[in-house]
Simulated assay, not measured.
Amino acid sequence: MIDANLNDPRKMYYSEKFPDQEQNTPALQDKMDPKPDCGEESYKGYNRLEGRRALITGGDSGIGRAAAIAYAREGADVAIQFFPGEEPDAEEVKALIEKEGRKALLLPYDLRDDNAATEIVTRTVDAFGGLDLLVLNAAQQIAQPSLSDLTMKQVHDTFKVNIISMFETVKAAEEHLKPGSAIITTTSVQSFDPSDPLMDYAATKGAISNFTVSLSSYFA
């Protein structure tokens, strides 16, 4: 009988109930239970990004961390922006990038700050000699049970981190991105199926979807 080398996807990943858990900002992936799998042990690279230079926002955890690990294993040098205070997660990613023989750059910046998005581009170009891959992934998500609990300060901060910083980063990066470069944005199901407790977050994700379509037309 032929061995088809199949894996049952129902048994490959964590399927138990997740325990209730919350962290204040700054938050660490290392403290999550169970600890997320971002490909630290499983992702295999094939040098498909050899010689590329990448900047990933929110690159210390979650989707950004998985991208950073994968890009390094595909041959890219990787800079990661992360929220100050989340250095332990960022240092883990740095070690994984360097283990692949690639350059790593840690950028502890709060994207709510003026010029932060511009500075991370400048520092990446200075360190790597250019920029070919821009992954706009950083986001703030804070659930509120009612509209009265949602402060305008939170609304402003969410928009600054989630979409305004994207505009600033792309503007700063445009002169460095040559034909064949890539800009990748992270949006969400919240962009078309918003949840009441995530009203500000969902609004930014809808804006990101629109922004991405506009960018594709502009650069084309």
Rank of each mutant, 00 (worst) to 15 (best):
D3M: 02
D3R: 08
D8Y: 00
P9E: 05
R10N: 13
E16R: 14
E16Q: 13
K17I: 09
P19G: 05
D20S: 11
Q21G: 02
Q21T: 00
Q23E: 11
Q23L: 07
N24W: 00
L28C: 06
D30C: 08
K31R: 10
D33P: 02
P36A: 03
P36K: 08
G39L: 13
K44F: 03
G45A: 07
G45L: 02
R48F: 08
L49A: 14
G51F: 15
G51H: 11
G58L: 09
G59C: 05
G59R: 01
S61W: 03
G62P: 06
I63C: 03
G64H: 04
R65P: 01
A67G: 04
A67I: 05
A68K: 01
I69Y: 11
Y71K: 00
A72V: 03
A72S: 15
E74W: 12
I80N: 00
F82C: 00
F82H: 15
G85A: 08
E86Q: 15
P88V: 01
A90F: 06
A90G: 08
E92Q: 14
A95N: 08
L96N: 03
L96D: 04
E98P: 06
R102D: 00
L106S: 03
P108F: 01
R112C: 12
D114F: 07
A116C: 11
T118G: 09
T118W: 05
T118N: 12
T118L: 11
E119W: 09
I120Y: 02
V121C: 11
V121E: 02
V121L: 09
T122M: 04
T122W: 00
T124S: 15
V125C: 06
A127S: 11
F128E: 01
L133G: 02
L134A: 13
V135E: 12
V135H: 13
I142R: 14
Q144G: 04
L147C: 05
D149V: 02
L150E: 10
M152E: 15
K153L: 07
H156P: 00
T158Y: 07
K160Q: 13
K160P: 01
V161R: 02
N162T: 04
N162G: 05
F167W: 10
E168D: 12
T169V: 10
K171F: 04
A173P: 06
K178I: 10
P179D: 05
P179F: 10
G180A: 12
I183S: 09
T185M: 14
Q190I: 02
D196K: 15
D196V: 14
P197D: 10
L198F: 10
K205L: 06
A207H: 07
I208N: 09
T212V: 03
S216H: 12
S217Y: 13
A220E: 13
A220D: 11
